[in-house]
Protein backbone atom coordinates (compact mmCIF):
# COMPACT_ATOMS: atom_id res chain seq x y z
CA UNK A 1 0.00 0.00 0.00
CA UNK A 2 1.42 3.39 -1.00
CA UNK A 3 0.31 6.95 -1.77
CA UNK A 4 -0.13 8.02 -5.38
CA UNK A 5 2.59 9.64 -7.46
CA UNK A 6 1.96 12.91 -9.25
CA UNK A 7 1.08 11.35 -12.61
CA UNK A 8 -1.20 8.86 -10.95
CA UNK A 9 -2.97 11.60 -9.01
CA UNK A 10 -3.41 13.53 -12.23
CA UNK A 11 -4.86 10.50 -14.04
CA UNK A 12 -7.23 9.79 -11.16
CA UNK A 13 -8.47 13.37 -10.84
CA UNK A 14 -8.87 13.73 -14.59
CA UNK A 15 -11.11 10.67 -14.64
CA UNK A 16 -13.11 11.75 -11.62
CA UNK A 17 -13.50 15.27 -13.06
CA UNK A 18 -15.31 13.74 -16.06
CA UNK A 19 -18.25 13.03 -13.81
CA UNK A 20 -17.99 15.59 -11.07
CA UNK A 21 -17.86 19.33 -10.90
CA UNK A 22 -15.86 21.67 -8.71
CA UNK A 23 -17.10 20.01 -5.56
CA UNK A 24 -14.45 17.34 -6.11
CA UNK A 25 -12.11 19.24 -3.83
CA UNK A 26 -14.41 18.34 -0.95
CA UNK A 27 -13.12 14.79 -1.38
CA UNK A 28 -9.79 15.69 0.18
CA UNK A 29 -11.06 18.31 2.59
CA UNK A 30 -10.14 17.72 6.26
CA UNK A 31 -12.91 16.21 8.34
CA UNK A 32 -12.35 18.62 11.25
CA UNK A 33 -10.55 21.92 11.80
CA UNK A 34 -7.77 20.63 14.05
CA UNK A 35 -4.25 20.79 12.52
CA UNK A 36 -3.68 17.04 12.73
CA UNK A 37 -7.27 16.21 11.97
CA UNK A 38 -8.34 13.14 10.08
CA UNK A 39 -8.84 13.39 6.32
CA UNK A 40 -9.43 11.13 3.38
CA UNK A 41 -6.46 10.03 1.26
CA UNK A 42 -5.88 7.89 -1.80
CA UNK A 43 -3.85 4.71 -1.50
CA UNK A 44 -2.72 2.14 -4.05
CA UNK A 45 -2.71 -1.53 -3.23
CA UNK A 46 -2.18 -4.06 -6.03
CA UNK A 47 -2.80 -1.42 -8.71
CA UNK A 48 -6.21 -0.64 -7.19
CA UNK A 49 -6.82 2.80 -5.85
CA UNK A 50 -8.65 3.16 -2.54
CA UNK A 51 -10.26 6.21 -1.01
CA UNK A 52 -9.65 5.76 2.67
CA UNK A 53 -9.44 7.70 5.93
CA UNK A 54 -5.85 8.55 6.86
CA UNK A 55 -6.19 7.03 10.32
CA UNK A 56 -7.37 3.77 8.78
CA UNK A 57 -4.59 3.82 6.20
CA UNK A 58 -2.04 4.28 8.98
CA UNK A 59 -3.51 1.35 10.85
CA UNK A 60 -3.37 -0.76 7.71
CA UNK A 61 0.42 -0.40 7.53
CA UNK A 62 0.60 -3.11 10.17
CA UNK A 63 -0.71 -5.60 7.61
CA UNK A 64 1.73 -6.92 5.03
CA UNK A 65 1.15 -5.97 1.42
CA UNK A 66 0.37 -9.44 0.16
CA UNK A 67 -2.07 -10.10 2.99
CA UNK A 68 -3.99 -6.82 2.64
CA UNK A 69 -6.93 -7.43 0.30
CA UNK A 70 -8.79 -4.14 0.42
CA UNK A 71 -9.48 -1.13 2.60
CA UNK A 72 -11.75 1.88 2.37
CA UNK A 73 -13.64 2.47 -0.87
CA UNK A 74 -12.14 1.07 -4.06
CA UNK A 75 -12.35 3.76 -6.74
CA UNK A 76 -10.90 1.74 -9.58
CA UNK A 77 -7.63 0.46 -10.90
CA UNK A 78 -4.62 1.73 -12.76
CA UNK A 79 -3.94 -0.06 -16.01
CA UNK A 80 -0.44 -1.06 -17.00
CA UNK A 81 -0.34 1.88 -19.41
CA UNK A 82 -0.97 4.28 -16.52
CA UNK A 83 -4.60 5.06 -17.28
CA UNK A 84 -7.25 4.90 -14.60
CA UNK A 85 -10.41 2.81 -14.87
CA UNK A 86 -13.30 3.56 -12.56
CA UNK A 87 -15.14 0.68 -10.92
CA UNK A 88 -18.77 0.57 -9.92
CA UNK A 89 -17.60 0.73 -6.29
CA UNK A 90 -16.79 4.41 -6.87
CA UNK A 91 -20.46 5.17 -7.53
CA UNK A 92 -21.34 6.53 -4.06
CA UNK A 93 -18.54 9.10 -4.34
CA UNK A 94 -19.40 10.04 -7.92
CA UNK A 95 -23.12 10.28 -7.14
CA UNK A 96 -22.42 12.66 -4.28
CA UNK A 97 -20.50 15.11 -6.48
CA UNK A 98 -22.12 14.46 -9.87
CA UNK A 99 -22.27 17.31 -12.32
CA UNK A 100 -24.46 15.89 -15.07
CA UNK A 101 -27.22 13.43 -14.30
CA UNK A 102 -29.63 11.21 -16.19
CA UNK A 103 -32.77 9.85 -14.57
CA UNK A 104 -34.02 6.59 -15.96
CA UNK A 105 -37.69 5.63 -15.98
CA UNK A 106 -38.82 2.51 -14.14
CA UNK A 107 -39.12 0.57 -17.39
CA UNK A 108 -35.51 1.39 -18.24
CA UNK A 109 -33.94 0.42 -14.93
CA UNK A 110 -33.64 -3.30 -15.54
CA UNK A 111 -32.24 -3.01 -19.08
CA UNK A 112 -29.58 -0.67 -17.70
CA UNK A 113 -28.79 -2.88 -14.71
CA UNK A 114 -28.36 -5.82 -17.04
CA UNK A 115 -25.63 -3.97 -18.88
CA UNK A 116 -27.53 -2.19 -21.65
CA UNK A 117 -27.04 1.34 -22.85
CA UNK A 118 -29.76 3.90 -22.15
CA UNK A 119 -32.15 4.54 -25.03
CA UNK A 120 -34.07 7.75 -25.35
CA UNK A 121 -37.40 6.11 -24.56
CA UNK A 122 -36.10 5.16 -21.10
CA UNK A 123 -34.86 8.60 -20.12
CA UNK A 124 -37.12 10.33 -17.63
CA UNK A 125 -35.07 13.50 -17.13
CA UNK A 126 -31.63 14.74 -17.98
CA UNK A 127 -29.39 17.64 -17.10
CA UNK A 128 -29.61 20.53 -19.52
CA UNK A 129 -26.61 21.83 -21.45
CA UNK A 130 -24.77 18.54 -21.38
CA UNK A 131 -22.11 18.09 -24.04
CA UNK A 132 -21.47 15.01 -26.15
CA UNK A 133 -19.25 12.28 -24.63
CA UNK A 134 -19.59 13.79 -21.20
CA UNK A 135 -19.58 11.61 -18.10
CA UNK A 136 -22.98 11.33 -16.43
CA UNK A 137 -24.28 9.56 -13.37
CA UNK A 138 -27.41 7.48 -13.91
CA UNK A 139 -30.19 7.63 -11.35
CA UNK A 140 -33.56 5.97 -11.04
CA UNK A 141 -36.57 8.27 -10.88
CA UNK A 142 -36.49 8.16 -7.06
CA UNK A 143 -32.86 9.42 -7.07
CA UNK A 144 -31.14 6.12 -6.38
CA UNK A 145 -27.79 6.01 -8.20
CA UNK A 146 -27.69 3.03 -10.56
CA UNK A 147 -24.41 3.53 -12.37
CA UNK A 148 -22.58 5.88 -14.66
CA UNK A 149 -21.92 6.33 -18.33
CA UNK A 150 -21.02 8.69 -21.15
CA UNK A 151 -23.52 10.68 -23.20
CA UNK A 152 -23.84 9.60 -26.80
CA UNK A 153 -25.34 12.92 -27.91
CA UNK A 154 -25.57 16.38 -26.52
CA UNK A 155 -28.90 17.27 -24.89
CA UNK A 156 -29.99 19.33 -27.88
CA UNK A 157 -29.22 16.58 -30.35
CA UNK A 158 -30.76 13.93 -28.11
CA UNK A 159 -34.10 15.76 -28.27
CA UNK A 160 -34.33 15.06 -31.97
CA UNK A 161 -33.34 11.42 -31.53
CA UNK A 162 -35.85 8.64 -32.17
CA UNK A 163 -37.05 6.67 -29.10
CA UNK A 164 -34.79 3.69 -29.80
CA UNK A 165 -31.67 5.82 -30.24
CA UNK A 166 -28.92 5.48 -27.61
CA UNK A 167 -28.49 8.58 -25.48
CA UNK A 168 -25.98 7.28 -22.95
CA UNK A 169 -23.32 4.61 -23.21
CA UNK A 170 -23.09 2.50 -20.07
CA UNK A 171 -19.74 2.34 -18.32
CA UNK A 172 -20.64 0.75 -15.02
CA UNK A 173 -23.89 -0.30 -13.39
CA UNK A 174 -24.92 -1.81 -10.07
CA UNK A 175 -25.59 -5.12 -11.79
CA UNK A 176 -21.83 -5.58 -11.89
CA UNK A 177 -21.89 -6.40 -8.19
CA UNK A 178 -23.54 -9.66 -9.23
CA UNK A 179 -22.19 -10.13 -12.75
CA UNK A 180 -18.54 -9.42 -11.89
CA UNK A 181 -18.69 -10.79 -8.37
CA UNK A 182 -15.65 -12.99 -8.97
CA UNK A 183 -13.35 -10.35 -10.42
CA UNK A 184 -14.56 -7.16 -8.73
CA UNK A 185 -12.70 -7.66 -5.47
CA UNK A 186 -10.21 -10.35 -6.46
CA UNK A 187 -6.65 -9.12 -6.76
CA UNK A 188 -5.22 -11.71 -9.12
Amino acid sequence: MRPLTETETQALFAKLANYTGNSLKNLIAPLDDSPNGDRYVFRIQNSRCYYVRLSLANLATSISRDKLLSLGTCLGKFTKTGKFRLHITALPILAEHARYKVWVKANGEMPFLYGGHIVKAHVGRWSEDCAEHQGVVVYSMNDTPLGFGVTARSTQEARRLDPTGITCFRQADCGEYLRDEDSLFATN
Binding site: E6, Q10, F13, A14, A17, N22, K25, I28
Partner: peptide, 9 residues
Protein backbone atom coordinates in the same frame (compact mmCIF):
# COMPACT_ATOMS: atom_id res chain seq x y z
CA UNK B 1 -3.14 17.51 -4.32
CA UNK B 2 -5.34 20.59 -4.42
CA UNK B 3 -3.07 22.26 -6.97
CA UNK B 4 -3.19 19.17 -9.17
CA UNK B 5 -6.95 19.05 -8.74
CA UNK B 6 -7.30 22.72 -9.64
CA UNK B 7 -5.19 22.20 -12.77
CA UNK B 8 -7.20 19.18 -13.83
CA UNK B 9 -10.48 20.94 -13.10
Amino acid sequence: MLTILAMVN
